[in-house]
Design a protein around this nucleic acid. Sequence first.
RNA 1: GCAGGGGUGGCAGAGCGGCCAAAUGCACCGGGCUGUAAACCCGGCGGGCGUCACGCCCUUCGGAGGUUCGAAUCCUUCCCCCUGCACCA
Length: 416
Amino acid sequence: MRTDMSIEEQLAHLKRGVVDLIREEDLRRKLERSRATGRPLRVKLGADPTAPDLHLGHTVVLRKLRQFQQLGHTVIFLIGDFTGMIGDPTGRSVTRPPLSRQEIEANAETYKRQVFKILDPERTVIEFNSRWLGTLRSEEWIRLTAKVTVAQILEREDFQKRLREGSPISLHELLYPVAQAYDSVMLQADVELGGTDQKFNLLVGRDLQREFGQEPQVVMTVPLLVGTDGVQKMSKSYGNSIGITEPPEEMYGKIMSISDEVMWTYYELLTDVPAEELARWRAAAEAGRVNPRDVKAHLARRLVAEFHSEEAARRAEEEFTRIFRERGLPSEMPIFHLPASVGERLELARLLVQSGLAPSVREARRLIEQGGVHVDGERIADPRAHIVVRPEFVLQVGKRRFLRIRSRETTDPMSA
RNA sequence: GCAGGGGUGGCAGAGCGGCCAAAUGCACCGGGCUGUAAACCCGGCGGGCGUCACGCCCUUCGGAGGUUCGAAUCCUUCCCCCUGCACCA
């Protein structure tokens, strides 16, 4: 596809948005050799099998992989079904319950479907590390772990930190980097990618490959995308993620909810908008010549289009504008069939609970008191208000939760 | 094994006999403002009830007992977690 690029051009292209590149010289040599021999590079990315829902954070590194593919190289998407049992000690993750073979298969399928929204299936190999790690005998484990020293492993910053703080480190956690490194050996990886938090693990791969007489892999790390909260890295467990399979409206809205500041990072990491152009937009926004909201809307639309379609993006935008800028009603909303007849008097708070818009009467009353509840567009502020049931009406809580209520007569006139 | 430190709301983390449904921060929710589900500001954040801007009740601080008019706070016991020193003489 872009194999006409010179090696230097390729390097520059691949370096874009990369935090660590260890070592650039090695990569250049590998690229040159690949061109000379016609043998594609083997570019590895490891993934945990436990969370198969990809979010935008994952796509940063996937986009980088795609660049390699576009240059004709092979991507090895490694599903860590064995290492998943250990759980990468990065972060606070607790011991994970082992997944069944079936669950893993199912997750892998989900992965494939999602990953191929970005990667080219023709140039992607899917692997499972249980294939070699799962069959290692105890003796082999001992021989393997003998190749790495404790000091090497404890260099890892978070291990040191935990040691300092007196936090626990389980023995098996020390094995994680070794296992991951062994994957690189088995796969004979030329390059391994990961987020910056993976740097250490990726480097162990180099060491171990050397131990096994292989040429060390090139390590490439990309920044971690910050989540919608603008603070922590995007992660499903932090509840700040934007999944790539989320409905268009949801995705659009979530992108609109990131801060103006974070938006620039998203542009950088999730689009191909040239840096110079971004700088121009930013200057214009800061000077007040351009409304940052519009820049953000452009981003939202662009990303929704990438993962859904232009058409879906357009609709999501219209919907967003209608609800939030014009304070209107969504084009579609869930319907709740109220088991009550026209004319009946109902306490609003209870109706909210009954219809699932509030978890408890107390909460419902709070919402009403705070002015968050509208019935057919009219704000009801009396926490003890009653309403007279109409054939159909719209309940709204907050800015974005709508429910169309239908009472008995309208849904089933025969049953009266 | 020994010594020590712990287990409190979604998370982090105060409180250590009554003023504790439990500080504070984060997350979350509602409102205001707006240019957006941005930023910022304000409010809320266990549940039920009432003649409802004030009050009542119920269930919460690892489990179970107990002391006390009264316990997240004290005692007993059990469970769990962590750190250090050992164990291998």
